[in-house]
Nucleic acid binder design. Structure first.
Ligand SMILES: [Zn+2]
Ligand SMILES: [Zn+2]
Ligand SMILES: [Zn+2]
Ligand SMILES: [Zn+2]
Lengths: 153, 153
DNA sequence: TTAGTAATGTTATAGTATAACATTACGTAT
DNA sequence: ATACGTAATGTTATACTATAACATTACTAA
């Protein structure tokens, strides 16, 4: 799914994107929010709220559930991360969003997740919604299966 | 989303479909499973596991979580119901499935849910998966928004 | 029968998330 | 600088969702 890559670069980019978005949205990337975002970006696999909690507590951060859930909520609201509904887990956002949508390929073998940004999906879904007189505000697509890496082995 | 209709008909159809599927799949629609399916079909809104539990306990059924979760698992495995991931809730299946997919329009106003069966969605998603070398096994689509009924008011 | 499997009963606990209220930090107007 | 309002975090408690593990019962088919 992902070629091996300098992953620290991903984190750096995610953080600077976050800084920019916070400027645009007039909100603050506080230490907790930043730390949670970093932890989430440590891999391309979804991470669970209580795993984040555990990692936070091993550093100098408060380790109570509301802390991490608030940070997650903030990051989700600003499209910096997404929730993988089928796993109760969270992953960094890898695309730019014009609409509220999150669309993923989820490998059930290696558990890596890739975000899809094909406008064609949104277009198809939006057309079908309209045909039913339904006005969509938020789209979530989760496709489980086997990624190309895992399929080769 | 739904025209007013004789809803008892929905339940009847759901039950007879379930009977048939159990014959085909060589499994049993036991009293508990049947009761849970009926309770789910009482509306076109998703229902939560613990709400089912409460309703079961008011009748002569055992009211422990494993009971209802087992019934839900059975019904899901046989494509008789689906789980709405964004709500931790369950709803009756309204379509015939060739593949493992569940696709829904979810009205955030009235909370009614309509299952989509457009093959076009599956086709689009499957094409895009393939382009990435991804082999899909299960698709979940949840579109939140406002249904046509609610949009008129 | 009887053995094997499927389904359910039962107890306990794991895992996920939020309510409610107190406190602190920050931005801004005076 | 001070005071004020708001945003963010701290804290405690609890609600909500789901499964593990093992015992018992029901069904099926030699
Ligand atoms: Zn994204
Ligand atoms: Zn994989
Ligand atoms: Zn269905
Ligand atoms: Zn509606």
């Amino acid at each position: 799914m992902w070629q091996r890559h300098q992953h620290s670069q991903c984190i750096k980019e995610a953080l600077s994107k976050a800084e920019q978005i916070c400027i645009d949205h007039q909100c603050r990337l506080t230490p907790i929010r930043k730390k949670v975002l970093e932890l989430i970006w440590k891999s391309h696999k979804p991470i669970k709220a209580y795993d984040l909690l555990a990692q936070l507590s091993s550093e100098d951060f408060i380790e109570k559930p509301p802390t991490v859930y608030r940070a997650l909520e903030f990051l989700i609201d600003n499209n910096l991360i997404h929730r993988i509904e089928s796993q109760n887990a969270y992953i960094g956002c890898n695309t730019d969003h014009e609409t509220l949508d999150s669309k993923f390929l989820i490998c059930d073998q290696c558990n890596e997740v890739e975000e899809l940004s094909e406008p064609k999906i949104n277009k198809t879904l939006s057309e079908i919604s309209k045909k039913q007189g339904f006005i969509p505000s938020l789209v979530n697509v989760e496709i489980h299966g086997t990624c190309s890496q895992c399929a080769q082995h």
